[in-house]
Design a protein around this nucleic acid. Structure first.
Length: 489
RNA sequence: GGCGACGUAGCCAAGUGGUAAGGCAGAGCUCUGCAAAAGCUCCAUUCACCGGUUCGAAUCCGGUCGUCGCCUCCA
């Protein structure tokens, strides 16, 4: 069954057919790095991580490009201020120093969340010449004009402007605050290049004097450079559909005389209940209602945060709450317990094919899982297939019958592939690798042995004491008919 | 005002014409020295509301109400 994607461009779910068979070019709008990433960013980038992982799983060769926006952008309000410059001033640091700090922070967070790194992470500041080139082309073709050292895109020259967000120029409310000192021909014209005021630190030479690029042009320039004029998938958060994505499209298509991205995938925002009425509102830096990825990771495992992100379809908005995270946590725990049990039973399973009729169930899972993912990357459905499978696995493993190694291996393998490689919610292995961890494991095994002796002698006080003390250290013991297993909390 | 998304059990959430997936929480049971884990059973005659189309609608059409996002920087 072919993969289907809901294309925001046209609002239709259609078969995904890449430009070049077997290859996918994908661009996702990355963060502006003037602060630590919050869970809203995590939702977007974990969502696209799943897209990339699944495309690769089903055999596509994916080239994944995600920019880093490290050039501040002047808001066009009267009191508008460049966020990077503002933050740099507040922290008494150089803008590029600040940007480097938060770029590193971003990658650290994404690494912990098991987000696969993009193949290319181009910085806007490193692509000024490419942006200038595009702007020049747009001027030459008559789509853009220069005024006082700034360059604007004339939206009236592009009939398709608004095709992604279904906006028509005449329906827009006339510019509210931006009309104040407009040197633009039309209120809706957007900046490609801005003249730098004397106090503006981030500045580059250009044919129009010293200045800095507009926000939208960087994505157009970097997508063109690394993916070509036309590529397969463009992603981002729904909050950037207008004006950012719309401007990207119009300037790229006018500059290149070619279609820009063929499939648009936009992720729903992460909301937070407002503290007074409990009404969900978007998590954002400017509202101050954000939870940083670092804070969230202090409370929840990365796999649980991914599980939370996957609990709703990527295009839906999701509301953050401790209750929902707790549910994700409990649900994840059940999945992972089954994986752990499978791995532990593999250690001393007979090398037979006992129980291999279960292989049919494993194949059924693969089919169900892929059917869910082929339907516009429906992670909630995909996880449901894993949960149903897990119930059957638990029944098998607790049935008391002998299960051969090959059956256990195929169960473990399917968890590793679908839960690990694709969803990124099943850790590779918890086999201790470091010397310290091996020593710790040996000590725990020794205590379990001592406890087993106490239990045999019905010395419940002693056996419970060992279990309780270990629990205080974060080691959980579970007694099974065939012995005691342990896990770290 | 314009554009877009959405309203399914206590909570989260699948489900786009054929009679309500899954998870969490809750109740009961089984197993167990106890605990934990796991399994079983129960938990929406009903899908915001009102009309309409249809043999049949949560799903299609029209309307009403409500929520969120975007239209200014934002993932």
């Amino acid at each position: 069954m072919p993969l289907k994607i809901f294309n925001v461009l046209g609002r239709e779910k259609t078969d995904f057919i890449p430009l070049e068979e077997g290859h996918v070019g994908m661009y996702v709008c990355g963060p502006t790095v003037y602060d630590h990433a919050h869970l809203g960013h995590a939702k977007t980038y974990v969502s696209f991580d799943l897209v990339v992982r699944y495309l690769r799983y089903i055999g596509y060769n994916v080239l994944y490009v995600q920019n880093i926006t490290d050039v501040g952008h002047l808001t066009e309000t009267e009191f508008g201020e460049d966020k990077i410059l503002k933050k740099a001033r507040a922290t008494q640091s150089k803008p590029m120093q600040l940007v480097e700090t938060y770029t590193r922070s971003y990658f650290e967070d994404m690494d912990v969340l098991k987000v696969t790194r993009p193949d290319i992470s181009p910085r806007a500041s490193g692509h000024i010449p490419e942006q200038i080139n595009m702007i020049q082309t747009l001027i030459e073709k008559g789509y853009a004009y220069e005024v006082n050292g700034s360059v604007y895109f004339d939206v009236t020259t592009a009939p398709n402007y608004g095709k992604l967000s279904n906006r028509r120029l005449d329906e827009q409310a006339e510019g509210t605050r931006e009309a104040v000192r407009s040197e633009k021909r039309n209120p809706q014209d957007f900046a490609l290049w801005k003249r730098a005021d004397p106090e503006h630190i981030l500045r580059w030479d250009s044919p129009w004097g010293e200045g800095f690029p507009g926000w939208h042009i960087e994505c157009s320039a970097m997508a063109k450079k690394y993916l070509g004029d036309t590529f397969d998938i463009h992603g981002g958060g729904i909050d950037n559909i207008f004006p950012h994505n719309e401007c990207e499209i119009v300037q790229s298509e006018c500059c290149n005389d070619a279609e820009f991205a063929r499939y648009w995938m936009l992720v729903g925002s992460l909301n937070v209940p407002d503290p007074i009425e409990g009404i969900p509102v978007k998590m954002s830096k400017s509202l101050g209602n954000f939870v940083t990825v670092k804070d969230a990771l202090a409370k929840y495992r990365p796999e649980v945060i991914r599980m939370f992100v996957f609990s709703a379809h990527y295009s839906n908005p999701v509301t953050y709450s401790d209750e929902v995270l707790a549910a994700a946590s409990a649900g994840w725990e059940r999945l992972y317990n089954a994986v752990r049990l499978t791995r532990q039973m593999m250690a001393d399973a007979p090398n037979t094919d006992d129980g291999n009729s279960f292989d049919a169930r494993v194949n059924q899972l693969k089919a169900d899982f892929c059917a869910a993912m082929d339907d516009d990357f429906s992670a909630p459905k995909a996880i449901a297939t894993l949960q149903e499978f897990t119930r059957d696995v638990n029944t098998l493993l607790n049935s008391g019958t002998t299960i051969g190694l090959s059956t256990l291996e195929s169960i473990e393998a399917v968890y590793r592939e679908l839960g690990g490689d694709v969803l990124g919610i099943i850790p590779e292995s918890d086999i201790a690798t470091s010397n310290n961890a091996q020593r710790e494991a040996g000590l725990i095994e020794l205590l379990i042995e001592l406890r087993a002796q106490a239990r045999k002698a019905k010395n419940w006080a002693e056996s419970d004491r060992i279990r309780d003390e270990l629990q205080k250290l974060g080691i959980i013991l579970e007694d099974r008919p065939d012995g005691t297993i342990w896990k770290v909390e």
